[in-house]
């Protein structure tokens, strides 16, 4: 299968986007939708928010494409835009929302008992259930590979806070998984 992300075939599409050609823009959107959503969904609380962040990111791509050097990897450039836009969204969210207590977070009933049966999307939905502060650090560190110093700079917090939030994020995720296990056990016992 041809990987259009790294393929030079992407350049004609990008050139079309530079001319504000809708067809090229839609093609680019279509190709990168899954990739973009897999990033945005982790940083947001639900799919609607993820779609909003995704579209905001694409707007940035289309309006700033002239600044992109086509000799470089579009995917990396786009990934940076996606993460930055997601972080901006999270910062807004953090302004309006106090840290959510883990007990208050309702875990869906669709999770299976055995951990090996928990699907990828279910795991991501657990990440979405974290408070914005924990979610941002967990995503940046565990999945996107930033170190604590970089995270501290991105989020405007101290490295210590970053480490502490990561630890609490893991703890909350473990608690959620335990809760799933308990609920599943009760369901099966009944």
């Amino acid at each position: 299968m041809v990987d259009i992300f790294e393929n030079k075939d992407l350049n004609p599409i990008l050139n079309g986007c530079l001319k504000n050609d809708r067809k090229s823009q839609k093609l680019l959107y279509k190709h990168f939708f899954g990739y973009a959503m897999s990033i945005c969904i982790r940083y947001t609380e639900n799919r609607a928010d993820a779609l909003e962040v995704l579209n905001d990111s694409f707007m940035k791509v289309f309006t700033n494409l002239k600044n992109f050097n086509q000799e470089r990897s579009f995917k990396s450039w786009f990934r940076r835009i996606l993460i930055n836009t997601s972080i901006d969204h999270l910062k807004k969210e953090m302004k309006h929302q106090y840290l959510e207590r883990i007990e208050e977070h309702e875990i869906g009933h669709h999770h299976s008992f055995a951990d090996q049966n928990i699907g990828h999307e279910e795991l991501i939905s657990l990440v979405q259930g974290l408070s914005p502060a924990y979610r941002s650090v967990f995503n940046l560190y565990v999945i996107d590979g930033y170190n604590h110093q970089e995270i501290a700079e991105i989020l405007g917090i101290s490295e210590g806070t970053s480490k502490s939030n990561l630890s609490k994020a893991r703890m909350n995720l473990r608690e959620m998984l335990k809760k799933i296990e308990r609920n599943e056990f009760i369901r099966i016992a009944r």
Partner: peptide, 19 residues
């Protein structure tokens, strides 16, 4: 979690494009 993030697949949304 890293594996889950890399493996999750999402299909194109026409509604998203219209927005």
């Amino acid at each position: 979690f890293r594996t889950a993030a890399d493996s999750a697949g999402y299909t194109f949304s026409e509604e998203g494009w219209e927005g």
